[in-house]
């Protein structure tokens, strides 16, 4: 590889195009989900251990902080899901041009917002 090729990777000087925004949010949500797995396993363990721990978990999940964390995890999961489906579609050659890539990014971002709002409605 030619190591002398010019490059500008200073992201603060670049206005990211929409597909790039959809992409970096996919990465950020994935990074967050990595740590969210610990919360999910905690909840799964408590939900399956005994009837008592199941009911205690239900009680805990009614708390404000728990609801906020649940909403956060569902939001990350929902967005990662939507953006992941876009990825799989693009692997199949759908939405790969500049224009359709932009359209795909817009659809992904809108669908992401819808999922995040619906998750909030579901939790509260």
């Amino acid at each position: 590889m030619n190591s002398n090729r010019p490059k500008n990777l200073d992201l603060t000087t670049i206005e990211l195009p929409l597909p790039a925004k959809a992409s970096i949010l996919h990465r950020i949500s994935g990074f967050a989900l990595f740590f969210a797995v610990a919360f999910m396993l905690c909840a799964l363990g408590a939900s399956l251990e005994s009837e008592q721990s199941f009911n205690e978990l239900k009680e805990v999940m009614n708390g404000g902080l728990a609801k906020f964390i649940t909403w956060g995890i569902l939001s990350a999961l929902g967005y990662h899901f939507v953006a992941g489906v876009k990825h799989l579609l693009m692997d199949m050659g759908i939405g790969e041009t500049k224009e359709s890539g932009r359209t795909g990014a817009i659809i992904t971002l809108i669908a992401g917002v819808v999922v995040i709002v619906l998750a909030g409605v579901w939790v509260w």
Binding site: V37, A38, L41, L44, G45, L48, E49
Partner: peptide, 12 residues
């Protein structure tokens, strides 16, 4: 995560 998850699933 893997060992923890297997432990949860196999305790059921």
């Amino acid at each position: 995560y893997l060992v923890w998850g297997i432990d949860i699933l196999w305790s059921v």
